[in-house]
Design a protein around this nucleic acid. Sequence first.
DNA 1: CACCAACTTCAATTCTTCTGAAATTGATAA
DNA 2: TTATCAATTTCAGAAGAATTGAAGTTGGTG
Lengths: 297, 297
Amino acid sequence: MIKLEALRVFVTVAESGNIKDAADTVGRTASAVSMTLKQLEDEIGGPLFQTDRKNSLTALGNLMLDLGREQIRSFDKSIGIMRAFAHSRIGSLSIASVPSVATNVLPPILQRFLETRPQVEVELFDIDSAQVRRMVESGVADIGIAGESRAGGGVEFTPLFSDRFKLLCKDDHELCQLERPVEWSDLHGATLIRNGASDRIDAEAYKQLSARSLMTVYNVTSLVALVKAGLGLTILPSLTMHGAHDGVAVLELADAAASRQVGLVERRDVSPSPVAAAFRAFALKEIPALVASRLED
Amino acid sequence: MIKLEALRVFVTVAESGNIKDAADTVGRTASAVSMTLKQLEDEIGGPLFQTDRKNSLTALGNLMLDLGREQIRSFDKSIGIMRAFAHSRIGSLSIASVPSVATNVLPPILQRFLETRPQVEVELFDIDSAQVRRMVESGVADIGIAGESRAGGGVEFTPLFSDRFKLLCKDDHELCQLERPVEWSDLHGATLIRNGASDRIDAEAYKQLSARSLMTVYNVTSLVALVKAGLGLTILPSLTMHGAHDGVAVLELADAAASRQVGLVERRDVSPSPVAAAFRAFALKEIPALVASRLED
DNA sequence: CACCAACTTCAATTCTTCTGAAATTGATAA
DNA sequence: TTATCAATTTCAGAAGAATTGAAGTTGGTG
């Protein structure tokens, strides 16, 4: 059975024009090289060199030099591709994320992740939690970032960080006079504007407030505008409204349970590509740290 | 260093879906296959299968399966081409031959030579001895068949057969009455038609006859027509006029030295392609035998 | 929960390839 | 032509890699 290694030796000898130099190049003794050549000639069925001074090839030798070089080049390239892929230097990565994370967290994370991976292609979808789960489940996205979901389904949830809900109101609102975190009872009689995220709050007091609310707004920018215009107050995860807004105040909630768990959503039973696995590990390590520093401000 | 053999094992396992069957296929034990796979994963830098039941591949495994299959296919094909070439099953063969051999000898020889070599391409030039030598020397022809030449030059001559000169005359010529081989002296006063081949005869008596000749004809068909028309007689190698002609007689010459040596003409110091080498050996063995049987008739 | 089949691990063995010394070869110069 | 010298080949032993069979794990299934 002819081995690629034997072809490597042959090509080196053909290029050197003698066994001694070729032996040095491949790091073997001349006798080892000589024997390899002999075996190669036996197996291929004919002489490769014109004389035993290896400076001129037979027609068969020329053919083997051409074909051999091509095989070596192609083999090494394939191995290179496999290694690059294994080390997640190439490949594609499709991420589905809720908007708050996609906007406030992912940009610097992705930038650092891709710094050493010039050949990785990334797609980033910002959609709501339910859709994130659907995209991951269907395989359209390799990995998702969303709020925790109840039903298991085909996906698995790994927490990244928890994000407390805060109260958003006009800065001349009477609640701003309170020198302490806001209790649910403080909101008695207030006008609540519901939004997509706040439905996750389990507190009974909140549910009652919510039930009496007449308005639901999904777009954060519109929501802030409405609050600023004095139409009511709203409750949002702090990450969602990151960045100060003139004319509105952000107040702490006393209820520590009023928070959402944000985490990775992955398909169960399907092994991720090396890039996805690497991103998973990177995200798990870096996102909590980044969010912690962001929420300090 | 990753070996092609390891890729073969991997591809077999990926295709079998389990180690046991793959081990049977490649003729190894399951443990050998398992170790090869482990080594491959270490060297490539990632897992190839989702679990240790080898029935589903990781993304990396799929990549390796694709690239690996292609490498194996391509390598085996290259080796096949080299072997076919070495065994002269493919390649090209350019032969330059004097017309008598090209017409009377080469057709059946080539037919048999090519029977087991469907992919060999042959070119056959029929030209005179001097040109044969020139074509071989310049490398245009791989091998030549011609009469022996004096000067060595860049070519080498290997005898194949010797071809006696015979006398060709009208069948009612008075020489036909002789019950013995013709002596040079018998030709005293006869009209000789010279031809391209007969100049090779060294006998002094012939040279004198030749010097007095007024006509030289190179084309054998014309030559025979002239003899038949009674314009004179001529002397030709017997192979040249193989096949009977009505109205002309072929007479033996007493001078045993009146013969030409026909043989192979090859370039010195240049190794022949495998096809050429095979044809050389074949010709050396078959042509003398064929000619002997032809000249018996 | 126990069983079974598939897989992995380990140490011993076998097979391959390599090395270093000696012999051979072929070119070059005397 | 012969002497010389470096390259190559040959050979036997050494080193290294792959393989085996037995024992130990593991994961799925009834």
